[in-house]
Amino acid sequence: QVATSTVRILGMTCQSCVKSIEDRISNLKGIISMKVSLEQGSATVKYVPSVVCLQQVCHQIGDMGFEASIAE
């Protein structure tokens, strides 16, 4: 089973930030795809909930120095 959710990301300033986040999160087990939008300050994450949760994704992004939260 696959889920798609949006994560809000604060602190991104350039495409390099976007690429860094996409590269790191895409390597997590259970992540199918991730598309980060600098303009919208968010990311669309396609993932397998039984393998990885959005809290883990937000935590990983937080470790990179950005502020991440699950969009309502």
Rank of each mutant, 00 (worst) to 15 (best):
Q56H: 10
K35R: 11
R24N: 09
S20A: 09
T44Y: 13
V57G: 02
G41E: 14
M34S: 02
L10G: 10
T4G: 02
I31K: 00
K35W: 07
E67H: 12
F66S: 01
K29P: 13
V2C: 14
K29G: 08
S26E: 07
Q1I: 09
V48I: 14
I70G: 04
I32Q: 03
V48L: 13
T6I: 14
S69Y: 13
G11F: 06
S33H: 08
T4Q: 08
K46L: 11
V7N: 01
S5K: 08
G65S: 02
S37G: 03
V51C: 04
L54E: 01
G11T: 03
T44L: 13
S42L: 15
A3N: 09
A71R: 07
M34P: 00
M64A: 05
I21F: 03
T44K: 11
R24T: 09
I9T: 00
T4R: 07
V7W: 05
E72D: 13
E22I: 08
C14F: 04
I32V: 12
E39N: 09
A71I: 15
G65A: 02
V45E: 02
V51G: 01
L10M: 09
D23G: 10
S50A: 11
S50W: 08
A43G: 13
V52S: 01
K19T: 12
Q60C: 05
G30N: 01
V45A: 02
V48W: 12
I25D: 01
G41D: 06
R24H: 11
I31A: 00
V45S: 00
V2H: 08
E39A: 13
D63I: 13
L28G: 01
T6L: 13
V48D: 15
S50K: 09
I25T: 03
L54Q: 01
I61Q: 03
Q40K: 14
S33E: 10
V51P: 00
S37M: 07
S33Q: 10
G65R: 02
Y47K: 00
Q15L: 12
V57T: 01
E22W: 07
V57P: 01
D23N: 13
I32H: 04
Q40F: 12
G62L: 11
A68M: 06
C14G: 05
H59Q: 15
G41S: 13
R8S: 08
V36W: 03
S26H: 08
K35H: 11
M12C: 05
E22C: 05
V36P: 00
R24A: 11
V36Y: 01
Q55E: 12
Q56C: 09
M64S: 01
Y47T: 00
V36N: 00
G62F: 10
G30Q: 02
S50T: 12
P49F: 07
S69R: 11
Q60T: 14
C17K: 02
S42D: 07
A3F: 14
Q55A: 11
K29F: 11
C17G: 03
H59A: 14
T13R: 14
Q1G: 11
G30R: 04
I31M: 03
E72C: 07
C53G: 10
V57I: 15
Q15G: 13
I61N: 02
Q40S: 14
I61P: 01
Y47I: 02
C17A: 05
N27W: 06
S16F: 07
E67R: 13
I9A: 00
L10P: 04
L38N: 00
V18D: 01
Q15M: 13
P49S: 08
S50Q: 07
V57E: 03
K46Q: 13
E72W: 09
Q60E: 15
V52T: 06
K29H: 09
T4S: 08
Q56D: 14
Q56M: 10
V45H: 04
V18S: 12
S33N: 07
Q55I: 13
G62P: 02
K29M: 11
S5V: 12
S50P: 03
S26C: 07
I21M: 02
D63L: 15
I70E: 06
I21T: 00
S26V: 08
M34E: 00
H59Y: 15
Q60R: 08
V48M: 14
K29T: 10
S50V: 05
G11R: 04
L38S: 01
I9C: 05
H59T: 15
V36S: 00
C58G: 08
I21K: 02
A43L: 06
E67L: 11
C14Y: 02
D23W: 09
E72Q: 12
L10N: 10
L38W: 06
E67T: 11
S16W: 05
S33R: 07
M12H: 00
H59P: 02
Q60V: 15
K19P: 01
C14S: 07
G30F: 06
I32S: 00
M64C: 03
L54R: 01
V18F: 03
V2S: 09
V45T: 00
M64N: 03
G11P: 01
M12D: 00
I32E: 02
M12F: 04
K35A: 08
Q60D: 10
S26Y: 07
K29Q: 11
G65V: 04
N27F: 08
V52R: 00
C53I: 08
V51I: 13
S16T: 13
C58W: 07
S20I: 10
E39R: 09
F66K: 02
Q40E: 11
M64P: 03
K35T: 11
I21C: 04
C53M: 11
C17M: 05
R8V: 10
A71Q: 14
S69T: 14
A71D: 13
T13Q: 07
S33K: 09
C53D: 13
H59K: 15
L28E: 03
S37I: 06
R8M: 11
C17D: 15
P49Q: 07
S42W: 08
S26Q: 09
V18H: 01
F66N: 01
V2Y: 14
T6Q: 12
I9G: 00
C58N: 11
S26F: 05
K29Y: 12
V51N: 02
V18G: 06
Q60M: 15
I31D: 00
V7G: 02
T6S: 09
V36K: 00
L54M: 09
E39Y: 08
P49I: 07
I9Y: 02
F66Y: 13
G41K: 12
A71W: 14
V2G: 05
D23M: 10
S42G: 06
V52C: 03
S5T: 07
R24D: 04
V2A: 07
C53K: 13
I21N: 01
Q55W: 14
N27T: 11
K29D: 12
K46N: 08
I21V: 05
T13F: 15
S69F: 14
E22Y: 08
P49C: 05
I61V: 04
S20K: 15
V2N: 05
R8K: 11
S69Q: 10
C17Y: 04
E22L: 07
I31R: 00
V36T: 03
M64F: 04
V48P: 00
S26K: 11
E67K: 14
A43Y: 03
D63C: 07
E22G: 03
V57D: 00
L10S: 09
E22H: 08
H59N: 14
Q55N: 09
Q1E: 15
V2I: 11
Q1K: 13
E72H: 14
K19F: 09
A43V: 05
K19N: 11
I70Y: 12
S16D: 14
E39I: 11
A68V: 12
S26R: 10
Q56F: 14
I9N: 00
C17H: 15
V51A: 07
G30D: 01
F66I: 02
F66P: 02
G30Y: 05
S37Q: 07
S50C: 05
T6R: 14
G11Y: 06
S69C: 08
P49D: 04
S5F: 06
C53R: 13
C14N: 06
S26N: 12
